[in-house]
């Protein structure tokens, strides 16, 4: 009988994964995530088709995971860790159920909002100024699995494909919306095969990065309870939520356009903060360890942070 959730105590492959983890820990380094593209390579892409892929149908929720197992493990040993893990699972489940129930008014207010279409239009505008990477059109599709995305890319014939997979969710206390995207460029017609790189679940690519932006509830004055936040987001048919999403998606498109022309790191590996550059913390996920990046670009009260492994994250300046 399963009495511990499968995601906490999963099945099989433990030894292999343990070895892989040990290798990762021992290597002790941050691997670059971003694959930059040069202007010369962009010029060889030919026709570019854009695809916005959506893995979700509505705005997501997030929780701050419970960490009792750590506290109980340090004082109670292995038994304490096990009891703590079970308590963590129960607390996380209760928090998730509460978040999914509380978010209903916002989802109802956004029932006709199409973030994929908004991002597609924003990308078309933002990329018009990027030589070589301006898409002829941008489709919006539901991502089912990596096989379907590979089919879209491999089926594009001679045209190159810019794939932007979108994710958007409310922060755990509902005070902001985190919009993130995985962007990749796949050269068509076997072009640039000599520089193509690989990433999990994607066909060979010539550009890749993870980008995110965090947008706050417009006009928020002072702290609010999560329930109060829901009421504010959903007011006027969800207008505050639409305003924030529109702004975030527009910024995300601008970030992708910017990142397509941003240079590779000087040493070809990690992105080190230039001397005197401001360093800020970014909260992409709800749980620690939080990441730090340096401010690479500022515009209209926003700061774009470059993380050591190359990701780009936008926060309030």
């Amino acid at each position: 009988m399963n009495f511990i959730p499968a995601q906490v105590y999963g099945r099989g492959r433990s030894v292999v994964v343990l070895l892989a983890l040990a290798v990762t820990f021992l290597s002790g380094c941050v691997a670059p995530i971003r694959v930059p593209i040069s202007s010369d390579s962009r010029a060889q892409l030919g026709t570019v088709n854009g695809i916005v892929g959506l893995r979700q149908q509505e705005i997501g929720t997030d929780i701050i995971p419970s960490n009792l197992s750590n506290a109980m493990g340090s004082s109670g040993g292995a038994i304490g860790s096990i009891i703590g893990s079970i308590a963590d699972a129960s607390i996380d489940n209760a928090r998730a159920k509460k978040a999914e129930s509380a978010v209903k008014p916002i989802r109802d207010a956004l029932i006709d909002y199409q973030p994929g279409n908004v991002l597609a239009a924003d990308l078309q505008k933002a990329l018009a100024t990027v030589p070589g990477a301006s898409p002829s059109h941008v489709d919006v599709r539901q991502v089912i699995d990596p096989e379907t995305t590979a089919k879209w890319i491999n089926g594009s014939g001679n045209a190159s494909v810019l794939l932007v997979t979108l994710n958007y969710k409310l922060s755990p206390n509902f005070d902001s919306i985190v919009i993130s995207a995985e962007a990749s460029l796949h050269a068509g017609g076997n072009r640039l095969a000599n520089i193509a790189q690989t990433k999990p679940d994607l066909p060979p690519l010539v550009y890749y990065n993870d980008l995110s932006t965090t947008v706050a509830l417009p006009g928020l004055n002072g702290p609010q309870s999560p329930e109060g936040m829901v009421t504010l987001w959903a007011a006027d048919g969800g207008q505050p939520a639409r305003t924030a999403l529109n702004a975030g998606l527009q910024e995300l498109a601008a970030m992708i356009a910017y990142d397509l022309t941003a240079p590779a790191p000087l040493d070809g590996k990690l992105y080190k903060a230039p001397k005197d550059a401001e360093t800020r913390q970014v909260t992409i996920i709800a749980a620690p360890p939080y990441q730090y990046g340096y401010v690479e670009h500022t515009a209209e009260g926003r700061a774009w942070l470059r993380l050591p492994s190359g990701e780009l994250a936008a926060i309030i300046q």
């Binding site: 499968a6 995601q7 906490v8 105590y9 999963g10 099945r11 099989g12 492959r13 433990s14 030894v15 994964v17 343990l18 983890l21 040990a22 197992s69 493990g73 040993g77 292995a78 860790s81 893990s85």
Partner: peptide, 15 residues
């Protein structure tokens, strides 16, 4: 404790 923690991590990541 470390072996147990590593085991927990391994099982979590095996998901």
């Amino acid at each position: 404790r470390w072996v147990f923690a590593a085991g927990c991590l391994a099982t979590i990541f095996s998901g």
